[in-house]
Simulated scan of single mutants.
Amino acid sequence: MKPFWIGTNWKMTKTTKEGLAYVEKLKTFDKDARQAGLQLFVIPSFLSLPSIHPALNGTNIKLGAQNMHWAEQGAYTGEISASMLTEAGVQMIELGHSERRKYFNETDEQLNKKLKTAIHHGIQPLVCIGEDRDTKQAGESAVFNYLAQQIDRALHGIQEEDLSSLLLAYEPVWAIGEQGVPAEAAYIDRIHTFIRNHLRKHYRSVGDSIPLLYGGSVHLDNFHSYRALEHVNGLFVGRAAWDMDLFKQMLTELIQIKSDGGYTR
């Protein structure tokens, strides 16, 4: 059975000390989560990676990074290479987050180069896609076209067999951040169904196996409606996961659902 992914990107929030305290609490869920078929992951800041990696040794919790450059090395001040990340113990790499696109002008073409580098170095890529508010207001056909372009540009020139480790996170821009508006489950269902069918059509050998995560104002009041959707294979949680008192309730409920036999994929 495929795992159900659940994790969080800390963005620029936690210091290394705060991050270590967080993962010590997260580790208490590791065994039960593993038995329940949940795959936990956490994506700290760059500076915290070398300290958090050993803290996660012996667990099934995956460690990710928030970004990387596509070049092996070079005069790229302020950037991080794939080899630097693997040396720090990174297993996953988040690519294409809307904040990287908006604030740092990252393009689909740059994302494509980063994705190829991640695959080359054996780092599991978590590629983020999602439409902005204007595209959503233009109607679902516009949203479908927008997402299809993001996917196809990101995966351009990559062999299907090299996409076996890919994770794809749908994060509508209008639903994330402090001003984000939670999406209706029915809307997410239609979007994820479109994404799955698009992957099946264009990436046949792996189209069914690529996990589709949802992220965007996921919290205690709505995560059950999201996780129950057929084509939602994981949750990429924001602020509700930064506070372990909230996140532990979410994890506890997911673990309990599984142990009661009420959750399958």
Rank of each mutant, 00 (worst) to 15 (best):
A71I: 09
H97F: 04
S51W: 09
Q91T: 06
E24L: 05
K102T: 10
N105A: 12
H53V: 03
K102G: 04
F41Y: 14
A88I: 06
A55H: 02
F41K: 02
G96Q: 07
H53L: 08
I80M: 08
E24D: 15
S81M: 03
Q91G: 04
I93N: 09
Y76C: 04
Y76P: 04
I93F: 06
L56G: 01
I52H: 13
Y103R: 06
G58M: 02
F104P: 02
L95N: 09
R101K: 08
L63T: 01
A75T: 02
L63K: 01
F46C: 06
S48T: 06
A75V: 01
H69W: 12
G37P: 05
Q73Y: 15
R34V: 13
A82Q: 00
A36N: 08
L47P: 10
T28I: 06
L95A: 11
E94T: 02
M84W: 08
E79M: 00
A33V: 05
S48W: 08
E79L: 00
E87L: 08
I93M: 11
V42G: 11
L95K: 09
V90G: 11
G89M: 10
F104H: 12
H53C: 14
E94Q: 11
L47D: 11
N60Y: 10
Y103K: 11
A88Y: 12
R101T: 02
A75K: 05
K27W: 04
F29C: 14
E99F: 03
L47W: 08
I93P: 10
M68A: 13
K31F: 14
M68F: 07
I52Q: 12
Q39R: 15
L56P: 03
S83R: 12
A36K: 07
A82V: 02
T86Y: 07
P50M: 06
Y76K: 07
N67E: 13
H97Q: 05
M68D: 07
I52G: 13
